[in-house]
Nucleic acid binder design. Structure first.
Lengths: 122, 122
DNA sequence: CCGTATCCCAGGCGATACTG
DNA sequence: CAGTATCGCCTGGGATACGG
């Protein structure tokens, strides 16, 4: 039987999932399909704050998925780009992203149906 | 040029990503590869609380990915199972999960290297 | 057994100001 | 330009108790 699989808290894959399965990491990696500077990334991710973008970039860097390169000259410039490891995540993430795009209409109609229950009173 | 793609806050795919790109949804769907009861799921996801599991299940149900079925008889029993939509997510999620398993060693060594910088003092 | 309701706290995040 | 620092809110989630 394979029936007694348990996802333990200290399972490394769970630890790593916690790092990348958030709303921003995926989008940052998508934006970094080509190397970009800090504010370029920020501009493309509507709603992200400077603070959170910095945190996300640091985490991705720590996990070996992107590199940070300070550009010579003034004013200061920093360029972020994918490592091979980060690029290898584009496959899985792309699949997931495509899935959401393909299914968002269906999902939204499910949501409407669900929200409709319990309140067609009077 | 495809260079000016911007991920807008009201993009449906972003809204949906916010729903499924969290640390528990993926694992719940994995556990539901076959229909299971509430406490079965809970037991297999070490560390999840009743409250959070309930919330996760409700959200997945609202999004049309799982169904909730009350079993006849007492004591009360409830069985959760994947819908076709939920099952179609297993592909993308499986890819992502496999990726983390395949790469967790590399990532952990990156993390150690990163954490090592800046503190080999004295 | 499968929830909901309540209380309560830590910490995540936005806003803002400041630096190399 | 690309951050770090500080502050204050506010909500997510743990713990617990209770209900169908």
């Amino acid at each position: 039987m394979t029936h007694d699989v348990v996802y333990r808290a200290d399972c490394p894959s769970r630890t790593i999932l916690d790092q990348i399965a958030d709303k921003w990491s995926m989008l940052v990696l998508a934006v970094l399909s080509e190397p970009r500077r800090f504010n370029e990334i920020k501009r493309r991710l509507e709603g992200i704050t400077q603070r959170v973008l910095t945190q996300t970039l640091r985490r991705l860097e720590r996990n070996g998925m992107i590199t940070r390169r300070v550009l010579p000259g003034r004013p200061l410039g920093v360029e972020y780009s994918l490592t091979p490891l980060g690029r290898s995540l584009q496959g899985p993430f792309g699949e997931l992203y495509n899935w959401t795009v393909e299914n968002m209409d269906v999902i939204q109609s499910f949501q409407r149906a669900y929200d409709h229950r319990g309140e067609q009173s009077t």
